[in-house]
Structure formats: C-alpha cells, structure tokens
Design a protein around this nucleic acid. Sequence first.
DNA 1: AATTTGCGAAACCAATTAGTTGCATTTAAA
DNA 2: TTTAAATGCAACTAATTGGTTTCGCAAATT
Lengths: 105, 105
Amino acid sequence: MRRDIFQAIADPTRRAILVLIAVQAMTPNALAEHFDTTRQAVSRHLKILTECRLITAKHQGREIYYELEINKMKEIDGWLEQFRTIWESRFNELDKVLETLKKNQ
Amino acid sequence: MRRDIFQAIADPTRRAILVLIAVQAMTPNALAEHFDTTRQAVSRHLKILTECRLITAKHQGREIYYELEINKMKEIDGWLEQFRTIWESRFNELDKVLETLKKNQ
DNA sequence: AATTTGCGAAACCAATTAGTTGCATTTAAA
DNA sequence: TTTAAATGCAACTAATTGGTTTCGCAAATT
C-alpha cells in the first residue's frame, strides 16, 4: 500500500476532488454528484486522500465535511522546487547570451 | 493506457529518473546503475516518460541520451497554480484579521 | 419506536502496472 | 568480418488499482 501525495494526485477523480474541496469543504454525497461513479467509490478516494493527509474529515452530526490541507499541497510544490531552480537558471543563461549579443552590437 | 504527467510522476523510480536527468542527460545504462532493477525496467520507465513528453531522446551513435523537457514539468506547476492562489489568499485573510485586531487595540 | 439518511468497510472483479526473461536490431570495436 | 555493447520490444507474471454491490452502524426524522 504505497500511499504518497504523488500517487494520490495521479488519479483524475482525486485531482478533481481536491479542486472542488479547495473552494469549499464538502460531504461525500455532495462530491459524488459531480462524478459518474457511486458514492462508495468517491468515499474510497477520500480515504486515500485522507491517508496521505491531503484532506481532513470534520464530523458534523451525521455528515462529514472533507476539507483541503493546503499545507500538504505545498509538498508537491516543494518537490518542483528543485526543477524550478533549473528552469530559472536556464533563463539566466539566456539573459547572458542576450547581454553578450547586445554588447557586441 | 492513461498517459499523463501526473500518472508519470506517481512512480518513485520515474521521479528519481527525472531528478537525475535534470542535472545531466543520461543513457538508459547509466541510469539503471542508480536503481535496483534491470535496464529493461528502466527503459520502460523512459518510454512512459517519453510518451508524455517529460523527456526526449537524443541519439548519439549507439547510445541514447535522455534529457529533461523542463517546459513539460511546468505543467505540474500550472496545475498547482489554482491552489497557490488559495494559499496566498488565506495568508491575506490572516493579514486582515491581524489588522483588525491591531485597530481594535 | 420505527424509518430514513449519510457514511465507511468488506468482498469481489476487471483492468492496469511494474517487474522479469528472452529475444532482435543497430553501431562500434577487434 | 566476427564480436561485443547499447538499446528497444514482446511475452509472461504478480501485485495494485478503481470500480461495483452488499452490508452494518450511527445520527436525524417521523
């Protein structure tokens, strides 16, 4: 049972759930209405998202509102960070080239 | 055969390949040395990464150097963008609260 | 008290995945 | 020209995944 954020966001339904929940906390039933699957299937996705701490359950009577853990989302951003330095440094090198061209004009 | 960037980066080996290649283009053999699997297995990962355009193959004699397509990596960043506005706006709301508190002191 | 509603868990199933071994092909080297 | 190296591809296998149906439980509603 590999359960990490990257495996969690690999599924398109789970990504959609995250986007929906980002706007507003929602119950499994409310979420299921947005998809062409059963509530139980959505529930399983919610379980997976909960297990890797991307969302948390807030019990309210017999309803359960799932809300986004925005800080966990930042971990994906964190992984991208190492590539960001690369794509920025490539821009920097382009800058250098442009500057050299300018100088030689 | 669902083949998108999110499914591609779901596998830890593929993520590691991306990081290695980010530093420097590499051949399948060179890459395989970093993992506890066969070269063929690495080759399949490279195929998947190639199919979703995260890497490209540069033939050089009988060797094939795979290099990162940094622009494709930005698509992940693009998806995160919608959440980034949220986590920034939450900071803003916190700012508002702090400001109100200050005013009422 | 009986019923309905909202939910998760278990059992099952088809499809996908990641790995292996065993090839075939192309290029360099002896 | 024979041989070795670098690679991709196909067939097979075990594990995982995402879905469904059925069930049980707890909280509202009647």
